[in-house]
Amino acid sequence: MCAMIEVENLTKWYGNTLAVDRATFSVEEGRIVGFLGPNGAGKSTALRILTGFLPATSGQARVNGRDVLMESLAVRSSIGYMPENVPLYPEMRVEEYLAFRAGLKDVPSPKRRAAVDRVLQRCWLKEVRRRLIGQLSKGFRQRVGLAEALVADPPVLILDEPTIGLDPTQIEETSKLIRSLGGKHTVLLSSHLLPQVEKACSHVVIIADGQIKAADSLDELKKGLAHRRQVVMELRAGDTGDGPAEVGRALGQVAGAADASTDEVGGGWLRAVVTPAADADLREGLCALVAQRGWQLREIHRLAPTLDELYARIVAGEAVTAGKEAA
């Protein structure tokens, strides 16, 4: 497999605002990759650079092996792009618009009809083909945008927030459609919501504050998380005279533990979080320690870390990159 999209040290300044900061990632041919990050992370900016709408301040980007700046027209021919909020011409009819865009994208005129029919079918637009775009609901407009991106059957699809503002059924449908594009097309789609990326993508690139924080397959990221399941316990030192610091120190020295922290939760109870050094279950060792020291234990469980949590930690600015740690 070869990389269909390659981004190297891409940086974009808007005046004094740094929107994309030395971003490096690549997207392999045929993959569906989610470009995930909170609002303002720099997703749209990076996608606009890839599609040739904006120039980068520095760094390089290649699509289909061609430089986005030097060979802009060739790159644009190989991309189907749906910008954020799906801008469309309200005064045009759906099929008229799609035929117009097919022509702009070099679909030869004898084949335009067939190309338009194909995407009308594929994006469930048949019943509105003669409607004015301005009269369509949000869901239909989104589909028109997708149909437009697909109409010339480009090898690369770049979709900026394709499911934003849709209701759950529509999100499901759109995700299904996007999943069906894999293999034949390389898809890079942005979203600020993890569940939507999980529905459609096999891989993610996570961006926050313009920097790439993680880039891996969802499976690998999950595996990476499974390696380090923290144990949470609530215990009381009682009459043994051990203070919170001593408890934390002792817990952290259990075989396989990397770190422990304690918090007082009232009534003399402590809440301890113990992080394992590797893929180890610490519960037995911890219980044994508690028994040996004569402490009281009222709760112990392992956290099941989710991508949600990982994503939240990344967004919150913690420098955790589970993907890299696992590797």
């Binding site: 599609t51 040739g52 709408f53 644009r76 792009y81 910008p83 801008p87 469309l88 702009l104 437009e148």
Partner: peptide, 14 residues
């Protein structure tokens, strides 16, 4: 204003 400039200028036209 409507943002269609983005689809227009990212099509393969000069």
């Amino acid at each position: 204003r409507s943002g269609t400039i983005e689809t227009l200028l990212t099509a393969p036209v000069t």
